[in-house]
Design a protein around this nucleic acid. Sequence first.
DNA 1: TTATATCCGACAAAATAAGTCCTATTTTTT
DNA 2: AAAAAATAGGACTTATTTTGTCGGATATAA
Lengths: 141, 141
Amino acid sequence: MLKFSKKVEYGLMSIMHIARMKGNKVTARELSEQYNIPPEILGKVLQKLKKDQLLESIQGVNGGYRIIRELTDISLEDVIISLDGPVVITHCCKGTGDDCTQFKTCNIIEPMQKFQNKLNKLFSDMNLNDFFFDEEQKVEF
Amino acid sequence: MLKFSKKVEYGLMSIMHIARMKGNKVTARELSEQYNIPPEILGKVLQKLKKDQLLESIQGVNGGYRIIRELTDISLEDVIISLDGPVVITHCCKGTGDDCTQFKTCNIIEPMQKFQNKLNKLFSDMNLNDFFFDEEQKVEF
DNA sequence: TTATATCCGACAAAATAAGTCCTATTTTTT
DNA sequence: AAAAAATAGGACTTATTTTGTCGGATATAA
Ligand code: FES
Ligand code: FES
């Protein structure tokens, strides 16, 4: 149920690693070996992050990935959306009812949508610098 | 990925309905028909909620389920834990590494656990009355 | 031209979630 | 006592989603 996908885990591990390299390149192979991640999957993860401009890539020999944006400028939501698409915690939340047998009589559509908004705010308010490093950060709910 | 299970959806729909009955009994069959939920699954959902004392059950003819606790006294976390077990957003978060190929070198264990705690706080701070009805509630993150 | 790297689609396997089947038990009504 | 209506719950099957694999194409430096 409520669980991050492996892709998001791989993505966060990679960004963490790359961020620590302070602008130096890291190859997919290095990451794959260091963290024991299947190289084909990791490749696609990095490619998606590049496509959404969370990472920069250099092709060819001596290529690799590096980070150019500030971690404070990237939200956890950015990573999730890039790798898994938008968060939809219940079928209700799409509003169409196409794929939910209960849609017509569902009595929790509104509460669910409100709650999903709260969750999304949690993700979008969380920047990667705080997520990774700011241990004493106090988040008030 | 981050999605509530059908069991949690069914449970919340049922509690919402039963709560509106203000202490009167509701049968599983009524709920099953009203909301188009497979009766066997709904039965088990209600039984779990009963076992964890979120609902009360009356067996035999004219039996059914009813609610005795205040909605403000039940948290969203209670419902989730009863129906799906504790939330574990990543394998990291268990700390054992039994089922994670990346555990030994994982560089996001701490951040993930901290974030999971934030999520859990969101779930445990959200009582069902607010979840269902309190539309203007302002939650500050 | 070769080696090393990113890029990418189609498919297969594994894991999880959802649903079904079948039977037992409890309690009221007849 | 028997029948009916309801909860209780185990074992199994199916469906869906997630994860991983295979095969190749493209780009660039040495
Ligand atoms: S619309 Fe599907 S459960 Fe609410
Ligand atoms: S321990 Fe598994 S990804 Fe962190």
